[in-house]
Design a binder for these strands. Structure first.
Lengths: 139, 139
DNA sequence: TGTTGACCTTCCAGTAACTGGAGGCCCTAT
DNA sequence: ATAGGGCCTCCAGTTACTGGAAGGTCAACA
């Protein structure tokens, strides 16, 4: 199977598949004309990668997961740990974004958004650290 | 003021401040010894940047916001628009992460996480597109 | 006066995970 | 023969920094 077919099947761009080969995630064969030749197992692996990436696992996570997937004797605990760590990262990110959202939404609501120059958003951004003791206290 | 002092005041690493100069966000003066010499207005600007970046505005957003900030005649609507677009991006990101979180958390809950090899997480990741018509339908 | 040591400088390279593009070969159809 | 599409490699760019090497500057101290 050529890269275009595999791209269609896995949902990954051909560029990305080549990249995944570069970094050693897949190792397709080569045809005599130099074209990459993908086996069914390669397609399966790429679909696995597409799914894991869509769930936000990093490439290095994916590498670990693929190893664990290939090892039929692995303990599910190992996989679960990777997933739980990822879940924690997701939770942190959501919390961070939610806080940003709250602040920003507050500012947006406070801004008239008209032709006049007064803008609470800029005012907040420009807010000076009056006390001086605020910013670098516990860095 | 030297870069170290400004770093302390703004909360930004010196490296980052140099980078901001590289990309034209600040233009500190230079002392005779070649050291960067920051005015109060530079410090103010950097604090503005630190705050905006903490709220997740991109560098290009920051560039626009700084321009608008410098222009005392701007309409608050312009600022509000940037902020609202950013708010939308945040909302999308939160939605995406929340969906990931739900799926992943479901899988983690389903996984025993013990010494046995059965693992619903890997099973899901490896899930084959049986129908074949699923993946590339509306690309 | 010499020498630490902290602070500053520039420049280069690397991060994560691709993406875009140039230049060129391969294959099929007309 | 020629047109087109698919494939190849290699290089560069993306975002927003961050780390490190090699070296200049400055204040303090013996």
């Amino acid at each position: 199977m050529n890269i275009g077919d595999v791209a269609d099947l896995s949902g990954l761009p051909a560029k990305t598949i080549r990249y995944y080969e570069d970094i050693g995630l897949v190792e397709p064969l080569r045809s005599s004309n130099g074209y990459r030749s993908f086996r069914q197992s390669d397609v399966h692996k790429l679909a696995f990668l597409a799914r894991a990436r869509a769930l936000g696992f990093t490439i290095e996570d994916c590498r670990s997961l693929l190893k664990l997937y290939a090892d039929t004797d692995r303990a599910s605990a190992e996989v679960k740990q990777i997933a739980e760590e990822h879940l924690d990262r997701i939770d942190s990110k959501i919390a961070e974004l939610t806080e940003m959202r709250a602040t920003l939404s507050h500012l947006v609501d406070a801004c008239a958004g008209d032709h006049r120059p007064d803008c609470p958003i800029l005012a907040d951004l420009a807010m000076e650290q009056k006390a001086g003791s605020i910013s670098k206290a516990s860095g």
